[in-house]
C-alpha cells in the first residue's frame, strides 16, 4: 500500500447528538462501528449486502443502509440511531403505535423499519397504504406479513395530520 492510503482512518462525527472521535478500520461498515465500537446494538447487521434494511440508520437527515456505508465515510456526519431517537422522544408516537398494533414480532427488523418509516412520515401529509408499502419495500420483515406495520404507520400519519388518533 502506498502511503497515500490508510488502513485505519480517523473520523470525527456526532452520534445521537454526542461528539465521537474514532480511528476505524478502512473496510469497516457503519453498523459494525456503531455496534462494536460504540455499543449501539439497536440497529442490526442481517444481510450485510444492502437488501434487508435491518441496519437502517439516519445519516444527515437521510435514512441509509448502515452496512453499505463505511465508517470512514462518516467523518463530519450527524448520525442518529434508534437509541438516540428513543432518548429524544423523536419517534415516540411511532413506537407506541407499533406496540399497540403489534407491528413487530421478533423485533429484529424493527429499529430499521422505524427509521425508514419516520423518513416517510417526516415528509408530512398522509401517505396512502400503497405509498407506505412502497416506501417500506426495502425493509424486510419475516414475521408480521407487513399489514400491522402499514396500519401502525398509517395511524401515525393520520395522527400527526390531526385526522385521527396516533
Amino acid at each position: 500500500m502506498t502511503e497515500m492510503f490508510r488502513d485505519k482512518v480517523d473520523v470525527s462525527l456526532t452520534v445521537n447528538g454526542e461528539p465521537v472521535e474514532a480511528r476505524v478500520p478502512a473496510g469497516q461498515h457503519m453498523i459494525d462501528f456503531l455496534r462494536l465500537e460504540l455499543g449501539l446494538t439497536g440497529a442490526h447487521a442481517s444481510c450485510e449486502h444492502g437488501v434487508c434494511g435491518a441496519c437502517t440508520i439516519r445519516v444527515d437527515d437521510d435514512a441509509v443502509r448502515g452496512c453499505l456505508m463505511l465508517a470512514a465515510q462518516a467523518d463530519g456526519t450527524e448520525v442518529w440511531t434508534i437509541e438516540g431517537l428513543t432518548d429524544t422522544n423523536a419517534i415516540r408516537d411511532l413506537q407506541e403505535a407499533f406496540v399497540v398494533r403489534n407491528a413487530l414480532q421478533c423485533g429484529f427488523c424493527t429499529p430499521g423499519m422505524l427509521v425508514a418509516a419516520e423518513e416517510l412520515l417526516s415528509k408530512g401529509g398522509t401517505p396512502s397504504r400503497a405509498e407506505i408499502r412502497e416506501h417500506l419495500s426495502g425493509n424486510y420483515c419475516r414475521c408480521t406479513g407487513y399489514e400491522a406495520i402499514i396500519d401502525a404507520v398509517e395511524s401515525v400519519a393520520q395522527g400527526r395530520a390531526g385526522k385521527g388518533k396516533a
Binding site: 492510503f5 490508510r6 488502513d7 478502512a26 473496510g27 469497516q28 449486502h49 470512514a72
Partner: peptide, 11 residues
Amino acid sequence: MKASAGGYARA
C-alpha cells in the same frame, strides 16, 4: 461478511 479493504483515502 466483513470487507477487507487495502486502504482508504478521502479525496
